[in-house]
Write a protein that binds this DNA or RNA. Structure first.
Lengths: 184, 184
DNA sequence: GTCTATAGCTCGATAGAC
DNA sequence: GTCTATCGAGCTATAGAC
């Protein structure tokens, strides 16, 4: 099956995300990504200026989705039920590609930390927490709000530790996440 | 101040852990560790056979402490209060060096994953969860038990996100961790 | 858009002097 | 126990042909 025009860039992103998440950012070389696609390193550089640019491109899509969620949140008044719906929508976002990206981010802290794209994401995590909990809430509630988000992220790299199918684990994680919200 | 005899090995461990946690395992070169100590790379190789050996050595101390905790746990009968005490003792272990090591482990998943020392640690995390929750407990309770441990680990890289001093955050994290245990 | 070829660098690790 | 010197390998990135 021949590669369709315009497909290569998207395939680079797919393969890169998969390898970055599995093996880590540093341990995944452009040579390896190129080999999986049956092209050379130089071909990658036609589509992306640097290795970091690939990561930036991956985060951009995700940021768009999260920013749409924030836009929705700004139209609502803050209530417990609104917060619950906010978490549900965030859980939707991290299904599929978004989840793999979050796994990559969680497991590659030091590598991601000094990328500009990583900094943007950290600001958004802070913003997520700010929606879920009042700024003057108790310290335990502050922590619970962050654990709520992490509960959803966690399901992505816990597959082997818990003996159940992915959908059941995700549903359970959502339940836990909702329980962790203030005035549950 | 001259270096005391026998100190070098310990200093290598200290500097390595600090840099591994801050910058990541892959991004920290032996050259950089050596430079901070005012020695050469070759000197490091007198004390440790490989880079991985440094990590192994760091984990070994931690594993000893955790295994002592398991030994204590085996002498107890499993009750809610015993589980609470178990968490309190674990929180003690991850004060100081142990905590930095856990931060390193959490943030360097892909790098640590294929080290033997990392595999040993993952088994122990599973064992921690097995103490905290019954094997046939509900899926949400399984997840909560793991979040309980993560709540303690989390305080180590959340410093900037929450505006409070470290001790207060740690105390709050312990409170949250205890609340997450089954039949709280 | 993709190729070959390579520059330029850093890394982990070793050999052997002191 | 620490040094100098170096090896071989792998990396990101670029130049230039097709």
């Amino acid at each position: 099956m021949a590669r369709r025009r315009g497909d290569t860039r998207e395939q680079i992103r797919e393969v890169a995300l998969k390898l970055f998440a599995e093996q880590g950012y540093e341990k995944t070389s452009l040579r390896e990504i190129a080999e999986r696609l049956g092209v050379t390193k130089a071909a990658l550089y036609y589509h992306f200026k640097t290795k970091e640019d690939i990561v930036t491109s991956l985060f951009d899509d995700f940021k768009t989705e999260v920013d749409e969620l924030f836009a929705w949140a700004r139209e609502q008044s803050v209530t417990p039920e609104m917060r619950r719906e906010f978490i549900r929508r965030y859980a939707e976002i991290i299904q599929g590609t978004g989840g793999t990206l979050m796994r990559f981010m969680q497991e590659n802290g030091p590598a991601v930390r000094h990328l500009k794209a990583g900094d943007d994401m950290r600001k958004r995590f802070q913003a997520l927490a700010d929606v879920l909990v009042d700024k003057d809430a108790s310290l335990p509630d502050q922590i619970r709000a962050r654990l709520s988000i992490f509960s959803l992220h966690m399901t992505l790299f816990i597959r082997d530790a818990i003996d159940a199918d992915d959908e059941a684990v995700q549903a359970a994680a959502l339940e836990v996440a909702l329980d962790l919200l203030p005035t549950g």
